[in-house]
Design a protein around this nucleic acid. Structure first.
Lengths: 157, 157
DNA sequence: CCAATTCATTACCAATTTGGTATTGATTTA
DNA sequence: TAAATCAATACCAAATTGGTAATGAATTGG
């Protein structure tokens, strides 16, 4: 139903791995071994994470990778967006609505609302959270614990 | 970030269209025209919807398609699953966890919890809901309005 | 200053997935 | 029996995606 690209999944795995090492710099190959992922793939994902400021890197003999912030200040949404490059459940209505049906745009707009709600949930779950078992009610808390102002921040319909 | 396949999007559009016609049988071509989708594509999606019991069909000269239940008793989750054939955000840990990292499976398990939460949200939003503008707080209600028992139904960690 | 190590960047490829098409068959109505 | 309409199968082309290879740039340490 909802698909998360493998690379995004990898990115999350990698980020959660880094989250367990605090500030220590780890080499690409170490990460690859720890996560059981191919080295070139880890390299690719790392680049994306570095580009988006989720991970910092240092070159040279003592170089390596580490999270650029504490794990509890990096959201999984940030990681996913970094790797997948954006968030969009549907494609229509992004630039200009080509479809004629007025009703279609109601549907599309509703999707956007749903999408944003999920996106906000993802922006509230951190890497630190992901490294300990989450219960279902934990997840719900992330949805519910938003400021009332935010609730209707996005005007619709 | 989260991608919904085009076909699933189409399926939703089609289902929402049918939802506006109550029990009236509509022909494939009419649906194609109304939704601005290619006829063969609509046919493909229809087949999936019929197979899963979301839509009923009748052959012959007075044949056509209609929802198999009232629009407020068909969830968008049902439609999406019908077209996409299942729900899975990630792939690991579906059959057997191949990865060594114990931590990896914590992450994967958390994903499952998140996935199920979203899935349940989708099972609470109906086609009828999708045909009127939803506000963000509406969406939240669907997440919150679950019985307390359900909350911790899925044991984790 | 040079060599070794490690990350950065670019370009590329192979394979799966996906959206879409065409054709032939089955069923109902008139 | 003929026309209309859905059903089913097989197929294709294009886009996406996961993964590879090779070369370049920066840092450390002798």
């Amino acid at each position: 139903m909802l698909r998360l690209a493998k690379l995004a999944d990898y990115g999350l795995l990698i980020a959660c791995h880094l989250a367990n090492l605090s500030d220590e710099l780890v080499k690409l190959e170490q990460v690859a071994e720890a996560t059981q992922l191919p080295v070139p793939t880890v390299r690719k994902v790392m680049k994306l994470l570095v580009d988006q400021g989720v991970v910092r890197s240092e070159r040279g003999m003592k170089g390596g990778y580490a999270l650029s912030r504490p794990a509890n200040r990096i959201s999984i949404g940030e990681v996913i967006i970094a790797v997948e490059g954006g968030l969009a459940l549907t494609e229509c209505c992004l630039d200009a609505c080509q479809c004629d049906m007025a009703q279609a745009c109601t549907v599309q707009n509703n999707w956007n609302v749903i999408n944003q709600t999920i996106g906000e949930m993802f922006s509230r779950i951190t890497l630190a959270d992901m490294n300990r078992p989450l219960s279902r009610s934990d997840v719900l808390k992330y949805v519910e614990e938003r400021s009332p102002n935010l609730l209707d921040y996005v005007a619709v319909g």
